[in-house]
Amino acid sequence: MLLEAKNINKQFAKHKALDDVSISIPENSIFGLLGPNGAGKTTLIRIINQITAPDTGEVLFKGKPLKREDISRIGYLPEERGLYKKMKVGDQSIYLAQLKGLSKSEAKERLKYWFDRMHIMPWWDKKVQELSKGMAQKVQFVTTVLHNPELLIFDEPFSGFDPINTNLIKKEILDLKAKGTTIIFSAHDMPSVEEVCDHIALINNSKVILEGNIHSVKEKYKENNYQISYTGDLGLDEPSIYKTLHTKITDYTTDAVVKIVEGRKNEMLRLLADRVNVKEFKEIIPSMNEVFIKAVEENNALSI
């Protein structure tokens, strides 16, 4: 594990922001930190960045308690992010890199590489206020990753990005992972989570309600629903084996969604083989979006 947060509690006045939160982030993974607005994600991220301290609990970085010096091994792109408007892009990037512990010459060299890569070299001497929002976002991304951190934390990285920049940054994130970086990724946009994340933790009402490998999480939320496609007549539902949820008859085939009783998949297959000509038989795995909504709704129902 690259990073472990253990039993983190954080109280703000009357509001409990984090309630006994524990997460483990495997090395070289992309870890999706999910949850509705106000669930406590940003607080947890700020604790990992040592911007705020937890009331109780501890954060381990490579098995050792997180220290102040570890800050240079972490790169953080906050949700509320910006740049000095009146400062030149180049100067500003060097400044932010120096604060992360890079020397001026080292920072310049690396910035050149990244600015070329992102095609933003011509903006070096421009003031930030002259840049468009998309351009500024590229600069922010570069300054976040410049010091080659072992852990990168992106809080809502795509909010406000256009689709082209979103894709570009997504590619860069996957590229960074390929180079061995571990990434914490907080987002609302579930398709991108599904696309890039290996692990997720879902926080709702200050608690972790779901955690694990993205496939196992989805497995957990599947409902034994299957998509089947066939020709012929299947006849009436066999309640001991399956129930039809939905049928659509076209000119050639019948498309149906059925719920198969737990452990009776083979009987179902036999039944299908006996009665109809099967074209397609596929288990329906819920999307992360569905998992998210279902998990949060279930959890909310429990707490009421």
Binding site: G82, L96, T144
Partner: peptide, 18 residues
Amino acid sequence: VEEKSNRIVEVIVSSVKP
């Protein structure tokens, strides 16, 4: 106020103490 309204302050305090 400028740093706060620019939203750069959180970027900076992830590198240095407030």
